[in-house]
Design a protein around this nucleic acid. Structure first.
Length: 374
RNA sequence: UCCUGAGUAGCUCAAUGGCAGAGCAUUCGGCUGUUAACCGAAGGGUUGUAGGUUCGAGUCCUACCUCAGGAG
């Protein structure tokens, strides 16, 4: 057994306090997973990521991206370097996205057929082809604890017919992903059969903004008996109520004894809400991207999330921390005035400190939720 | 003192004699499985000064002022 999911408690709201044990360690869920696309959570050093504040357990799982690492430095190079963990010196669990989302976000540079996707590199325009089998080969070479099936994320809005067609493709690709993965997962750099250390493959539910399609997608994927399931294709421009409804309904049809992962969400209040609904895993670029763009999160006296644009002039001589109640190393040490100065002056440290704070904020938000679910 | 060149937004610079603009800076906004230290919006002008030519001048003419380079 490569993955163990142990639920300590399921609250009335549906949220679960649990832990997921993976080849590279244990993560407490609900868990937020920072995104490190190119084997780097942008602007944050791995040691800092392990501990963003004095009483913080740090990031317990981080993401990397199949598409990006395939293009640069190349998955075979990463394999030769001992796998992505060793390559980037991150010993905790990791998850790789399959490249399916890039099929969606790189539209204009790609051509989709039932066989796979032909696309052009955003780096140099060179032609490449990704199939479910190839995505699996790349993800196995990278060797994250969790790999994702190769899927297609449909654009929003999309008609029911278009969404159903795309979903059918995702299902066929999921089966092909699983078959190829099962046949080759012993090739992960750290494979150790006697220790039961094997890579895990998660499925991805699609179905756009149509409840009936979400149900069909969930049922079809559950038949494949995968160790965990993701809900994909959300937060792509639809209203938040729709996102919430899709998650709430899809959770009904996913196994309760396996991790459920909503991909690509969200704002701090969203991840809190979804965790309480029973989502166990989430990832999002927002804390790091927003941080690099000058947006930091804080809580007001009532505990409500507030957005703070650190660029604003009103912080120029503000000698307080971003959030006095925050336990991160940035709030313990630096003033808003200094952070604003670094950002306005274009100092790279500003990007780093904002990112570290935001990551801590997200991780602490999950910790709050976990405490509440006890 | 003379010659030459240049004076346009906070800065660096565009603009056939025909609606005075850009980049940067400033202020504000956006960011949801990262093509993103990114993207967008706004504010900002008596075109060095004073005259003249012209239907119309940032642009042509005259004088002056300032700066740079050259000559003496």
């Amino acid at each position: 057994m490569a993955l163990t999911f142990e639920i300590q408690k399921t609250a009335e709201c549906g949220g679960r306090r649990a832990s997921v044990t993976l080849p590279h360690g244990v993560a407490q869920t609900p868990v937020f997973m920072p995104v490190g696309t190119l084997a780097s959570v942008k602007a944050v050093e791995q040691g800092v990521l392990e501990r963003t504040g004095p009483d913080d357990r740090g990031a317990e799982i981080i993401l990397a991206n199949t598409y990006h690492l395939y293009l640069r430095p190349g998955h075979e190079l990463v394999r030769r370097m001992g796998g992505v963990h060793r390559f980037m010196s991150w010993e905790r669990p990791m998850l790789t996205d399959s490249g399916g989302f890039q099929v969606f976000s790189l539209s204009g540079l790609r051509k989709v057929t039932s066989e796979g996707v032909e696309f052009r590199s955003h780096l140099d325009g060179s032609k490449h082809f990704f199939s479910p089998e190839h995505s699996m080969d790349v993800q196995i070479a990278l060797g994250a604890d969790i790999a994702m099936v190769f899927d297609e994320c449909v654009e929003t809005p999309a008609t029911w017919e278009r969404t159903r067609e795309s979903m059918g493709l995702t299902h066929a690709w999921a089966q092909r992903s699983k078959d190829h993965f099962d046949a080759n997962r012993h090739l992960v750099p750290w494979f150790a059969e006697k220790d039961g250390k094997t890579q895990n493959l998660f499925g991805i539910v699609q179905g756009g903004m149509y409840v009936d399609l979400r149900k069909e997608s969930a049922e079809r994927l559950v038949e494949m008996d995968l160790p965990g399931y993701a809900i994909g294709g959300l937060a792509v421009g639809e209203p938040r109520e729709v996102t919430r409804e899709m998650i709430a309904r899809t959770l009904e049809w996913l196994p309760k004894d396996k991790p459920r992962y909503v991909m690509g969400v969200g704002y701090p209040d969203e991840i809190e809400e979804y965790a309480k609904m029973g989502v166990d895993m989430m990832d999002c670029v927002l804390p790091t991207r927003a941080g690099r763009h000058g947006l930091v999160f804080a809580r007001d006296d009532d505990g409500r999330v507030v957005r703070m644009n650190i660029k604003r002039k009103e912080y120029a001589e503000d000698s307080g921390p971003i959030d006095a109640a925050c336990g991160c190393m940035v709030c313990a040490r630096y003033t808003r005035a200094y952070l604003r100065h670094l950002f306005v002056a274009g100092e790279p440290l500003g990007l780093t400190l904002n990112s570290v704070h935001n990551l801590h904020f997200y991780l602490a938000t999950m910790e709050r939720v976990r405490s509440g679910l006890k």
